[in-house]
Amino acid sequence: MIKELFYLLIFPGFLFISAFALAGEYIDRKLYARFQNRVGPPWFQPLADLIKLLAKEDIVPCDANANMFKLVPVFALTAAVASIIYIPLWQSSSIYSFPGDVIVVLYLLTIPTLCFFMGGWYSTSLFARIGSVRTLTQLFAYEVPLFMSILSAAVLADSWSIKDIVNFYNSHPGYLLFNGIGFVVSMIALLGKLEKTPFDIPEAETEIVAGSFTEYSGRLLAIFRLTLDIEMVVGAALISAIFIPFGLNFSPVPAFIITVIKIELVIAMLSLARTIFARLRIDQMVNFCWKYVVPLALTQLLINFLIKGFFR
């Protein structure tokens, strides 16, 4: 019982993942600044922002459904924290690894997005509603290629468990080369999931103020911000576990360090992407995903089926 609580609340659960998420946000913001030839924030800035928000007043709009408005951020945070339990961090197996956990992680990562939608919808502000509708529209565009690209890697490994996928690719690293398209597709989809430029359409500040988060303030906004950071770390961890699984079969300490470096690398790639592109429109984003990204993901799936049929 105590062990489970330790896993859930301290390591690798809430406490660790929050610290890691804030570190991830720092890396993202610092790199973003340096790419733009600026100095960027000091290391404690994400933490300071979080504490500042936690200390501020929560304002609930008169027309909003107060219970839903307050509950939704907690749902989102819970789902994001829960997903880290199934991500391998210092060995090829996660704490509660079971066949099918890759699908569970993908689903747990969808819940925050749905919570953003509901939070925006129940705050009844016009900007928030437009933002939440955009969140949902965007969800349908990137979720399909994300699932397909992750699952095509799983198809090749012939398993629905992250542990087996990691073990398979570690013993047959040659097969990883075929997953290149899947890696690119999943990175694009992750950009959409994290609502980062060029896909920050749901919270486009110059158009709809802050999208779903327009009416949120204080602690509730802090929870949402933390959720986004945790989602970023978990998403990056999932991609690095599946597409660059090296090092996880080492002894725990080096394996853990290598994993952290890999996650930061994926985050760095995400911040590079958001530096060099302009924000797309929602119709352009949906078009782009269904016209180019989905066919790419399908190609990846086809390639992996063919390889599996011929070589394995």
């Binding site: 600044a33 340096r34 790419f35 733009q36 100095v39 590079l272 530096t275 060099i276 592109f277």
Partner: peptide
Amino acid sequence: NPGKMLKEVLCSLFRKPVTVLY
């Protein structure tokens, strides 16, 4: 040319920031 600013942006990473810490 998607990502036209990529080169410039990567160069900036190794350049001194222009921000003056006034």
